[in-house]
Structures are given as structure tokens and as C-alpha cells.
């Protein structure tokens, strides 16, 4: 197939892409990288790093699994978009590992419905490792990691059917969801499950807020993934992220003032640079 490639024009070199924001984006990336390295090094050396506030949804994770244990019902944890090349899937894996270990410790079934064939093996591995770490490898049931379909609504139909039949007492919807979010969460509500959602897609947040008991909003999905590890090196990356965020807020305020009070026809130096 490579022979069929038709090149539009001759090859061209350039240090940075000719589309806008490449230089500023590269600089932002380097700043974040250096900051992260600095904070991680500090954490590794044992120096104190800023504390991360408690997130209610994460605190409720143990409570939800405990409730399922008391009721003798399974825990359902899933992410719709769980392809291996997405950062929300990577965050989901952290939650999956944590939940699997807790479920193994409490002797509670964990059900995971998968929508991506490639992720299936990874999910199986993560859950199996959770059972191994809890010292109960024999309790792992491979039939509870279920590939439903890679098509959105076929997957949803499978999951809500499972919810109705097996009635998990806790439902954790973590990662990227689309139109299926409301169907899943409302079905969870109908069966009386305690529900925790973590979502970085602004489209579906309103649905989760309306239907779930706890919601981790936007970046809290990623922060939570570092937080539940309780490892200062991991939380160090969150500290670096917050430092950049504060700096960006500063830039926004300065940029707004410059734009508001600049002379007629003059350039806003910040706007010009960020478009560079």
C-alpha cells in the first residue's frame, strides 16, 4: 500500500510546524516537563510537596465497595471509551486496579464490561493482579471481565441488561462516556446502586451530576488516579500541573488587561506570542 502514497509537494523541513501555536505549545510543554521533573525529584529526595485536598468521590469509593460487600452484590466498573491510546483509559486502569484489589480483599465480585478488544487483555491482567496482590488469586473469575461490543449502543444494551439481571450494588463509571452516560447512570439509579462517576468529557457531565451520587469533574479524573496511589512522586505531577494552571491564570488576567487597555490598533504582545 505504501507504493500508492501520493505526496502533495516536495518534502519540507522546518524546526516547528507551520500551523499556529506550535512554538508556544512547545514552550508550554517544556515548562511543564521541567516543573514535573523538579517536583518529582523533590518528592523522591523526601522534601515536602504541597498537599492535595480530599476529593469526596474518591473517599466514597471504599464506602461504595463496602456497601456492595454488605449486600452481597457485585461491583460494576466500566469505561466506555477504553482504547489503549487514550489518556482517560490510562487513568481508568488505575481505578480498576484499586477497585479490583479492594473487591478481592472484601471478597466481592467485580464486573468489568469492555468495549475495546485490545484493552480486554489489559483489563484481565489488571484485575488478576489485583486479586494476586490481595492474596486471593483463586477468587478471580475471568467471566466477570466481559467484552460486549465495540459499538456504542450495542455495548450499552449489553451493560444495562447486565445491570438489570445481576443488580450490582455499586456502579463506578470512570473514563470517557458519550450518549450512553445517561442510560447507564439512570439504569443504575433504577436498580438502587450507589454510583460514582469520573468523566473528563464536558458533554456528559450534566447527566452524571443529575444521576450519580458522586462525580469527579474534568481533571479530577486524572488527579484521582494519582491521589489513590498515595505516592508522593505521583502526586508531584499534580502539583506541577497546578503550578502551570496558576501561571496560566496569571497570563489570562494580564492578557485581558492588555487587550482592554491597549492603544487603538496596537498589538497585544501576549496574544501574538500565544498564536506563534
Amino acid at each position: 500500500m505504501l507504493e500508492m502514497v501520493q505526496l502533495a509537494s516536495g518534502a519540507k523541513w522546518g524546526f516547528l510546524a507551520d500551523d499556529g501555536q506550535a512554538v508556544s505549545g512547545f514552550c508550554m510543554m517544556m515548562i511543564m516537563l521541567i516543573l514535573t521533573y523538579y517536583v518529582i525529584t523533590r518528592a523522591r529526595a523526601g522534601f515536602p510537596i504541597p498537599h492535595i485536598r480530599k476529593i469526596a468521590g474518591l473517599e466514597a469509593l471504599d464506602e461504595a465497595i463496602g456497601r456492595a460487600t454488605e449486600m452481597g452484590q457485585p461491583v460494576h466498573i466500566s469505561s466506555f471509551r477504553s482504547t489503549v491510546d487514550q489518556q482517560e483509559s490510562w487513568a481508568f486502569w488505575v481505578y480498576l486496579a484499586h477497585t479490583a484489589k479492594l473487591c478481592a480483599q472484601y471478597d466481592t465480585r467485580i464486573i468489568n464490561c469492555v468495549s475495546d478488544e485490545i484493552s480486554l487483555a489489559i483489563h484481565e491482567e489488571i484485575i488478576q493482579t489485583g486479586y494476586l496482590e490481595a492474596g486471593r488469586p483463586d477468587a478471580y473469575n475471568p467471566d466477570d471481565v466481559r467484552y460486549m461490543s465495540n459499538q456504542q449502543f450495542a455495548w450499552v444494551a449489553g451493560v444495562i441488561g447486565m445491570l438489570e439481571r445481576e443488580r450490582p450494588a455499586a456502579q463506578l463509571l470512570i473514563g470517557r462516556f458519550f450518549a450512553e452516560s445517561l442510560v447507564l447512570a439512570e439504569q443504575g439509579n433504577l436498580i438502587g446502586a450507589i454510583q460514582i462517576a469520573a468523566n473528563d468529557s464536558a458533554f456528559q457531565l450534566p447527566f452524571f451530576v443529575a444521576t450519580c451520587d458522586y462525580v469527579l469533574i474534568g481533571e479530577e479524573l486524572y488527579v484521582g488516579a494519582a491521589y489513590i496511589s498515595r505516592d508522593p512522586v505521583m502526586t508531584g505531577t499534580v502539583v506541577a500541573e497546578d503550578m502551570v494552571k496558576m501561571a496560566l491564570f496569571g497570563v489570562m488576567i494580564v492578557g485581558t488587561l492588555l487587550e482592554t487597555f491597549k492603544a487603538e490598533g496596537a498589538d497585544n504582545i501576549l496574544r501574538t506570542w500565544f498564536n506563534y
Binding site: 511543564m32 514535573t36 491482567e125 464536558a202 469533574i217 474534568g218 505521583m234 505531577t237 506541577a240 502551570v244
Partner: peptide
Amino acid sequence: LAIGIFLGSYAMVLRMFLGLERKHLG
């Protein structure tokens, strides 16, 4: 929200590629 999500996901990417996050490797 978008700025927060971008920075959060970037921190996640860094954790992954710096080898801090290893859950996917079992």
C-alpha cells in the same frame, strides 16, 4: 474546564511515559 482537563491529561501522559504509572503492565 478544558484547561484543567488538558493539564490533567498532560500530567497523566507524563506519568505514563516516565514509567511512573505501570498498572497496565500488571
